[in-house]
């Protein structure tokens, strides 16, 4: 089977690059990275606000997410609304049912679809 010198040199170079990139794929993780930034907003998932019927924000509402169609795991974290009634749920793309609890009672439910690199907004008015 004939081989040209150029072809063989090209093959050698390709193999070298393959090896180099394979080795880099591991060690690249061994380098300390920049500190990044503090999140000011969610980049993917579901975010929103919980208010009561008077329009006042409701804090410390537990927002539980259940997947309706996704094979993505849901973090076992307790997501709560803040003093302004806002919540942020980082989630993988898929459709979810959110259930809102206050004092152990369900005060709202909603469904939302998360798309890649998108944030779905949901505003909930509690029925209490």
């Amino acid at each position: 089977m004939p081989f040209s010198r150029d072809a063989l040199n090209a093959l050698s170079a390709l193999l070298f690059l393959t090896v180099a990139s394979a080795m880099a794929a591991g060690p690249v993780d061994s380098v300390n990275s920049a500190s990044g930034s503090v999140a000011t907003s969610l980049d993917q998932g579901i975010a929103g606000t919980v208010t009561n019927e008077a329009g006042e924000p409701v804090a410390e509402v537990f927002v539980r997410a259940a997947s309706l169609d996704s094979n993505s795991p849901i973090p076992d974290i307790a997501i709560l609304t803040d003093a302004e009634g806002r919540f942020s749920w980082p989630l993988q793309p898929g459709t979810y049912r959110l259930t809102f609890y206050l004092d152990g009672t369900v005060v709202g439910e909603a469904e939302a679809t998360v798309e890649a690199a998108r944030v779905s907004d949901i505003d909930v008015v509690t029925d209490e």
Binding site: L15, F16, T18, V19, A22, M23, A25, G26, P27, D29, S30, V31, N32, S33, A34, S35, G36, V38
Partner: peptide, 22 residues
């Protein structure tokens, strides 16, 4: 080449780096 490429994976010890908030 294949052997060199496989070594980090075979060892199961691909290093993970640290990222810190500060």
């Amino acid at each position: 080449s294949c052997l060199l490429a496989a070594l980090p994976m075979a060892s199961g010890a691909i290093a993970q780096g640290s990222v810190r908030s500060d």
